[in-house]
Design a protein around this nucleic acid. Structure first.
Lengths: 139, 139
DNA sequence: TTACACCCTAGACCTAACTCCAGGGTCAAG
DNA sequence: CTTGACCCTGGAGTTAGGTCTAGGGTGTAA
């Protein structure tokens, strides 16, 4: 069927390993999948989307515990709790974005210094950037 | 002296543990510190700045190996190699910033939905956001 | 010259998030 | 009704990045 997948296909389509899918189920990041009479898990396409969501959040610095709190499959999750979690996450994310931008600028300045040096001395071994990072870094 | 620190003070001022400082030295993220006759490490304020740099980069998703590549205390690091590393990091950072902004927007939309629901039904248990995340997530 | 906070090393241990393995069962195609 | 790809479980192993412990030495102020 177009909306029924075995674990291998879920794994492939969401870019994780089979073990990871089972691991997520154990961690309650995915609801316990229904089974065939023989014991095979049966998934639908929503599982794939959900794994993708988990991966994205994780890439952005959230732990599986945090994600699990947000998605909590166990027990009804009142709207108020979710609201508070989201609020906290957003504050955190704002801070991360800010320092990320600053770090980006810092690296950009370093890159410019490198280019400068290489323009002047194409085979320079003494990189001014390394010296700078190594010896004083309070930008 | 104003520019001479023992490991405990370095740790405290840069917000990591003593063990972490020693660990960074072992990993060559910090140059091997000179010692007192009795074997105590002696640091200067640049070490503190460097630990702060490492922590910042790490928070933003860089591994210690990557940071170590950039700072490589072992062997002369030619400017060209540093330039290439920086260039690659910046590309990576751009991508991360982009998906971070998208995720931020997504969470903001979820938060708005929560507020909406709570305005309507102040004690709502059925959070529309959880249902949405759990059941279809391809934004 | 003792008190006591601080430092040393080697090596074991910890947590998160997987990843692998053995030993065995399932299922669809031919 | 067999075969080959795929799936099952329980539990051990792995990696990154620390953290802790035992057993012992250092430095300095009173």
């Amino acid at each position: 069927m177009g909306n029924s997948f075995r674990i291998g296909e879920v794994a492939e389509r969401s870019g994780v390993s089979i073990d990871t899918v089972r691991y997520y189920e154990r961690r309650n990041l995915l609801p316990a999948a229904p089974r065939t009479p023989g014991g095979y898990r049966i998934f639908n396409s929503e599982t794939i989307d959900r794994v993708l969501f988990i991966k994205q959040a994780q890439d952005l610095g959230f732990s599986l515990d945090e994600i699990s709190n947000l998605l909590s499959t166990n027990g009804s999750s009142e709207c108020r709790r979710v609201r508070d979690l989201l609020d906290a996450k957003l504050t955190e994310l704002d801070a991360r974005l800010k320092s990320m931008h600053e770090f980006h600028d810092k690296l950009t300045r370093y890159l410019a210094e490198c280019e400068e040096e290489l323009k002047r001395y194409p085979d320079s071994a003494e990189c001014p950037v390394v010296i700078e990072i190594a010896h004083a870094e309070r930008a």
